[in-house]
Structures are given as structure tokens and as C-alpha cells.
Amino acid sequence: MQTISINDFLEKSNVSHMSGPGNFNMLRINEKDPCALQPIPYHRRSFYKINLLRGSYDIHFAEETYKVSKYAIFFANPLSPYNWIPGDGAHSGVYCIFNTDFFHHFGSLQAYSVFQQDGVKVFELQEEQFFRLDGIFSEMQAAYQSDDKHKYDLIRSKIYELLHFASKLDTQKGNVFQHGRASARLVKAFLDLLEEQFDVAINPNGIILKTTFDFAAALSVHPNYLNRVLKENMGSSTKQLIQERFLQQARILLRYSDLDISQIAHMLGFRELTHFSAFFRKHERISPSMCRKV
């Protein structure tokens, strides 16, 4: 299973779009758009997405399926693969997409349960709630299309408004069908443990766990079993998920910190700068120093 990037997603869309910081984009869909009429493939996306939906849908995650009958707001994060299948009738909506860079130094999206592995991701809405949220999206769209130099600050505030609104909605899962919970628990434990490796408060001396065997031992499971569960639920192997998270942290430190590249390499558990440079260049196709200049 492949991971879809924002650029891949936008290239395949049949609507015009603009690119902002953090690859922020916002699109409205109507009944004639392909994404409103066709099933969306089951993939992991490398970006966040907040989607206000109108119509009937089945939205599938690895651990559960949500059935939407009329109105809903849907939160997707880069760690959870999903797809949706439109039901009968008309479908429309609006959504925004962005990556982690869009909120760098502007709070932590991961603190909100809607973006956590075991959080409620889809909320069915009453008609009044739908139109209230549609109004927030309309304000975001007006700012997005304006020439205001501070427009992205306003958009970030509106996204937080959506998150706060969702946090007050009923978290009782209505039309939700659960999948294998043991696998879901293991996926969450792995992702939590992976995030801990980059928490300075927990690991002040840098990365401790770096390999599939390290994580399997910490989770008290066989490496092959961990790999199979992650592959089935997230579409990527344990090694790929670890590498992707390391690369994400490397990009953040290179672009937004004043640390020397050798210090960054040490923080990420590389004993030699050459090893870090070779790892980064292999996956990013540019050197760490070039990434810092981009």
C-alpha cells in the first residue's frame, strides 16, 4: 500500500488549487467532482485532512468503519490509512489539507483526540451543526483566496475552532463497526512508543529505539508479528514507519532549529555524521545541508 503525498493528491484532482505554507490547500467538492462520486482508495496519506461531508458514506479505517447517513465532519491524520465509499444520493462538501509544517510553532495537533490513533475521527452532525461548520469553512476559504499577508494565521485559528467544536461533540460512536481491537492496540502502542523517541523530556540523551527488533522487544512481541500487524493496518512495514518518522524529525530540525547537522545526527541516534548524511540523501534525494537551504 502506497502513501499518498499532497502533491500526488493534488495532481490527481480535477480542480484548480493553490499552494500555501505547509502545503495548505482548500477545496470544495460538488456532485460532479470525481471524489464525490467514486470510492476513495484505501491508502495512507502523508498529510492532515479535515473534511465536511454531505451525503451518505462508509468510511473505513484499519480498526473500524463509520457509516455516515447525511452530514458529518471527518478528521484524517498521516498515520491512519483510510478510504470512503459514497452511498446512494447526492454528495458534496469542503475540505482542507496541510502537513505538519503548517502548524510548526503554532501548537500541537497531536494533542487533539481526533488526530490520535484511538480517537473518534468521524462525527455525524445535525443540519444546524453542518451549516455552522460550513460557515467556518467559508471564512477560511475567503481568507485563503484573499491577498491578506496574515491570512494563514486566520486559517490556523479557524482550524482550531473546528477542533474545539469537535471536542464538544458526542464522542459516543454511533454507527461504527469495530475491527480487530488487539491489532489496533498494538498499532497504538507502537506509534506512542515511536513518538516517545523524539520527546526530549523522556529521552534527554537522544534516540533509544531505532530498529524493528528494538521496538518488538519493548512491546514484548515477535518482530515478524509486529511487522505483519503494522503492514496490515498501516500499509507499511515497521522499518518503513520508523524511517519515515526519523526523516520527518530530521526535516523539522534541519529547517527550524539552529543545531549543527552533527548535533542533529547525534540526537537521531547516528554515531557518525556520514551515516546520517547517507541515510538522509538516500531517502530525500538531497543532502542535509541542501535541505537546510531550501
Rank of each mutant, 00 (worst) to 15 (best):
Q2A: 13
Q2H: 02
I4E: 02
D8A: 06
K12H: 11
G20L: 08
G22E: 12
R28F: 08
R28D: 12
I29M: 07
N30Y: 11
E31M: 12
K32V: 11
D33R: 04
P34V: 05
P39A: 15
Y42F: 15
H43Y: 15
R44C: 02
R45A: 09
R45W: 03
S46P: 03
G55A: 08
G55S: 03
S56W: 01
Y57P: 04
E64K: 12
T65A: 06
K67F: 12
K67P: 00
V68C: 05
I73P: 04
A76Y: 02
P78G: 05
P78V: 02
P78Y: 14
W84G: 00
I85A: 06
G89H: 03
C96F: 11
C96N: 08
I97G: 12
D101R: 05
F102A: 01
F102Q: 01
H104M: 04
S108P: 00
Q110R: 07
Q117H: 13
V120M: 13
V120L: 14
F123R: 04
R132P: 00
S138P: 04
S138G: 08
M140S: 12
S146C: 10
D148Q: 09
H150Q: 15
Y152F: 14
D153F: 09
I159E: 01
L163T: 01
H164A: 15
F165M: 10
A166F: 11
K168H: 10
K168M: 03
K173S: 10
N175P: 06
F177T: 15
Q178F: 14
H179E: 09
G180W: 06
R181H: 14
R185P: 00
V187N: 12
A189F: 08
D192Q: 02
L193M: 15
L194C: 06
L194N: 01
E196R: 03
F198N: 02
V200Q: 09
N205R: 09
G206D: 07
L209T: 02
D214N: 10
S220G: 09
S220H: 15
P223M: 03
N224P: 01
N227R: 07
N227E: 07
L230T: 07
K231H: 10
E232N: 14
G235N: 13
S237P: 04
Q249M: 13
Q249V: 10
L253E: 13
L254M: 09
R255Q: 15
D260M: 08
A265Q: 03
H266S: 03
E272I: 07
H283E: 11
R285T: 03
P288C: 02
S289G: 00
C291N: 01
